[in-house]
């Protein structure tokens, strides 16, 4: 086991991936709980498809994917929230429309330009080989901003997601907080897409919060547990992927799924015990 870890850390691309992945996992777990509790889980999924669509534009043009995708996905997040709040179309339907369309547009552009090469495949399902040094710095900086924002607004975010109407009636600008959450989600999805892939990134946001909520019943404990779970699952996933030569993103989701099932069964037996 130790030897395996030693070998793992001797590769510089693995170290880069672990730095980026830890940052992304931390941010994703922070954002996940508000998204799950507000029934916004699907927004994460929708945005990741949009992320793929924007990559399809960036890659043939030879532009840096991060710099193109972040603003575009943020724009999509902004639009999604607007549609949710101001239109008669149902939120989940709007998400489905936007996510399918951008995926389709992405696939069309790619087949017309560069073709379905490994690069594209990497974006769909993630690859830890793909991370460049420049992206590592950007990722760390962005994560630091997200974490700082989250800590600063922690109590306010709690009050808004717990009871939006109460917060609004007593003068809180809830649109600001909704927008903040959606925009931060957009950013973290684009960054995380490198490792996890567009298809799997939303799991990183949803799983830790959902898993923690099986067992824990206060907000603070769920937040702390999500952070812990998210980072541990990421790390275990990378090790598994390295040891068994499985795709990284999928392995991380697999570890998350296992932890979710474990938490579910503990919660099930706990409740059964209480009934007896």
């Amino acid at each position: 086991m130790l030897e395996l870890l030693e070998e793992l850390f001797s590769y510089s691309f693995v170290v880069k991936a672990i730095v980026v992945g830890t940052c992304v996992s931390l941010c994703a777990s922070f954002l996940g709980l508000p998204l799950v509790l507000r029934r916004y889980s699907m927004i994460g999924d929708g945005l990741s498809h949009v992320g793929f669509g924007t990559l399809a534009i960036a890659v043939p043009l030879g532009l840096s994917p991060l710099k193109v995708s972040i603003p575009l996905v943020m724009l999509a997040a902004f639009l999604l929230l607007r549609i949710r709040e101001h239109s008669k179309m149902q939120g989940d339907a709007a998400i489905a429309v936007i996510s399918c369309s951008s995926l389709a547009i992405g696939v069309i552009i790619i087949s017309l330009t560069v073709g379905m090469n490994t690069d594209v495949c990497n974006y769909l399902f993630g690859s830890i080989l793909a991370i460049k040094e420049e992206e590592v710095y950007m990722c760390v900086a962005i994560s630091a901003v997200i974490i700082a924002l989250f800590i600063f607004f922690y109590n306010k975010i709690f009050s808004v997601i717990f009871d939006e109407n109460y917060a609004k009636a007593s003068g809180t600008n809830i649109e600001f907080y909704n927008m903040l959450l959606a925009l931060l989600t957009a950013v973290i999805i684009v960054i995380g897409m490198r490792i996890m892939g567009a298809m799997l990134i939303s799991s990183l946001i949803i799983f830790p919060a959902l898993t923690s909520m099986r067992l824990l019943k206060t907000f603070k404990s769920v937040v702390i547990s999500s952070i812990f779970l998210s980072v541990v699952c990421f790390f275990v996933g990378v090790v598994v992927s390295f040891a068994y030569n499985t795709p990284t993103g999928a392995s991380i989701v697999g570890v998350n799924l296992v932890s979710f099932l474990i938490f579910c069964s503990i919660s099930f037996f706990k409740r059964k015990k209480e009934l007896l």
């Binding site: 009050s159 109407n165 109460y166 007593s170 019943k217």
Partner: peptide
């Protein structure tokens, strides 16, 4: 911020993880 509003009971999410203290404290924020 002098206004307090309480919606009908059904609107408070029943599966929301929050302790009583966290909820009550959040009232002081406004």
């Amino acid at each position: 911020n002098d206004i307090g509003y309480m919606a009908q009971q059904t609107q408070v999410q029943k599966d929301f993880p929050a302790s009583v203290y966290e909820v009550v404290l959040s009232g002081t924020l406004c």
